[in-house]
Design a binder for these strands. Structure first.
Lengths: 157, 157
DNA sequence: ATAATTGCAAAGTCTTTGCAGTTTG
DNA sequence: CAAACTGCAAAGACTTTGCAATTAT
């Protein structure tokens, strides 16, 4: 099952003139195994090195770039300093709610964005990339934390 | 007018125990002069150096960090590799539509997000930071470009 | 065979940090 | 004066690139 998915993806790579190498196979398998986790390049290196200890970072970046061009992978900037990669094919459609205070990432159903997407299309002729898009804000815990500290700092009413 | 705004901001800094230095004054003035432009740390360095040639990058980062803590400035990650900073006070409420193909940034009215924000609050107990939150997708030009190249590559119907 | 890919090492960008000297309140 | 800030230089995270050796087709 998992292998079939990997092979199907690798076949697209081959069809586009690319070569299927063991490194690339391991990268794709790592991403499939990761499910919907948001893997950084470093994550992938770590996973692949379990099978191939000499696997090098530059290979990840070059392969991810290639896969992105082919539309197989989508890079998403959830937080500063760490681009994460989604396997488009594997991901259920979802969004990310990123808490800017604590960094927690909540996955939300993508259809939340449907109304917004059509508004944006109409008003700005802009096609929203709704899948995997990061939305920023504050999670419940951080809102409470903040309210609590405000209360402590300013013990008025 | 402009000076008053700067002084008001600097006063908040002073009230919080910070010191108002000429470097910080120049940083704030640079951001005010930038209006709603999205200034990167490097942009600010460049502007400030016109008045103070020895002004150093580390000072920008430290000052922006401080101003962010005070809620005076908001960092936004529009594209990978370049955090931009908004002066909260100065910005009219807006969003950014970021074209992932060509990097164009369109400013959109923030109330587009109102419906989404209340949905997210209800469904996920998450408070969207609607202002200055970047939305990703493709601008009109890039959609056309893509359609054209598809037509060229696959001259079917 | 030959074009694509890899490992390696070096460099590049953006940002952070430690420290000693300077400035602000 | 004491605490905060600055310049400087060094380092850190993440990513890119040139090149010779290797590998897929």
């Amino acid at each position: 099952m998992r292998d079939l998915k990997a092979e199907r993806i690798l076949e697209r790579l081959r069809e586009s003139g690319g070569r299927v190498t063991s490194a690339r196979r391991l990268i794709v398998e790592a991403m499939l195994a990761g499910g919907d986790h948001h893997l950084t390049a470093a994550d992938i290196v770590e996973i692949v090195r379990r099978d191939d200890p000499v696997f090098h970072e530059s290979t990840v970046y070059r392969t991810l770039e290639r896969l992105t061009e082919l539309g197989i992978v989508r890079p998403v900037q959830l937080v500063p300093g760490a681009t994460v990669f989604h396997l488009v094919e594997n991901a259920h459609r979802h969004n990310h709610l990123v808490c800017d205070d604590c960094g927690t990432i909540i996955e939300a159903r993508v259809d939340l964005l449907d109304v917004l997407a059509s508004d944006v299309a109409r008003n700005h002729r802009f096609t929203l990339q709704t899948e995997a898009a990061p939305l920023h804000g504050r999670c419940e815990a951080c809102q409470h934390a903040d309210a609590a500290s405000n209360r402590a700092a300013d013990p008025a009413p």
